[in-house]
């Protein structure tokens, strides 16, 4: 692992965002732009995710790491806009399910996905089931990611599943679910009709890629 990754991780742990940003900017001056994501941000997120999973990292520390990543992504995006356009892996739709207003985790997932070259349509909080499905159809997304923090609101995800089923889209549009309650109750994924979940924002790019690939195979099967 690059020394810069460890140094940034330590800054996130101690809450030193400004120092972390300065450190990364200095590193970026001496390295190719593409390395920022592959050699720094992705390994940093991997480390943050692992430590979070081990319960060695708090929400506050994860928040600092996310802010650090967002800052770097903004800089990279600005450079890309000025230069050659970047390829995206595809479009995904994100939102907190109807009645759920805890959007912080969703914001972190969106950051991770953008870092992984996904185009994210973020619908925000309290999104009705139909709106998820409409947005996916309109944007051509093959994966919908629905977040719920609490048990009671997680049950509303069933409505998204039902809408996909009724419109004959299940299989061709996959349903990723996540949020604090799924860590405590993994059995809920099946109960609400989810196609998959991940333990934290770090796992989102891998999960969405897996579901995207599965949806693509299904689409080919239908063609």
């Amino acid at each position: 692992m690059e020394t810069i990754v460890r140094a940034l991780f330590e800054r996130a742990k101690t809450g030193e965002l400004t120092e972390g940003i300065a450190l990364l900017e200095a590193w970026r001056r001496d390295h190719p732009a593409e390395d920022t994501i592959t050699k720094v941000l992705e390994p940093l997120l991997m480390l943050v995710g692992t430590e979070w999973q081990k319960q060695c990292l708090s929400l506050a520390q994860s928040y600092v790491a996310t802010r650090l990543v967002e800052s770097a992504l903004t800089a990279v995006a600005a450079e890309r806009a000025a230069g050659a356009s970047a390829l995206t892996r595809g479009v995904v739709v994100l939102g907190n399910v109807e009645d759920d207003f805890h959007g912080m985790g969703r914001g972190m997932v969106a950051s991770m996905l953008r870092a992984g070259h996904w185009e994210v349509v973020d619908l925000g909080n309290d999104v009705p089931a139909e709106e998820f499905v409409n947005a996916a159809v309109e944007s051509g997304a093959k994966v919908i990611g629905v977040s719920a923090m609490m048990y009671t609101t997680s049950l509303n995800i069933v409505k998204v599943r039902r809408s996909l089923d009724e419109r004959g889209l299940s299989g061709r549009i996959k349903l990723a679910v996540g949020g604090a309650v799924f860590r405590l109750r993994p059995d809920l994924v099946a109960e609400v009709g989810g196609d998959g979940t991940c333990l934290n924002a770090l796992g989102a790019p891998e999960l969405f890629q897996r579901l995207f690939d599965a949806a693509s195979r299904q689409e080919v099967g239908h063609a």
């Binding site: 742990k13 809450g15 319960q55 990292l57 708090s58 929400l59 506050a60 520390q61």
Partner: peptide, 9 residues
């Protein structure tokens, strides 16, 4: 709680 904040805070 330790899920939200770190010891230094």
């Amino acid at each position: 709680n330790s899920t939200t904040v770190m010891r230094s805070l």
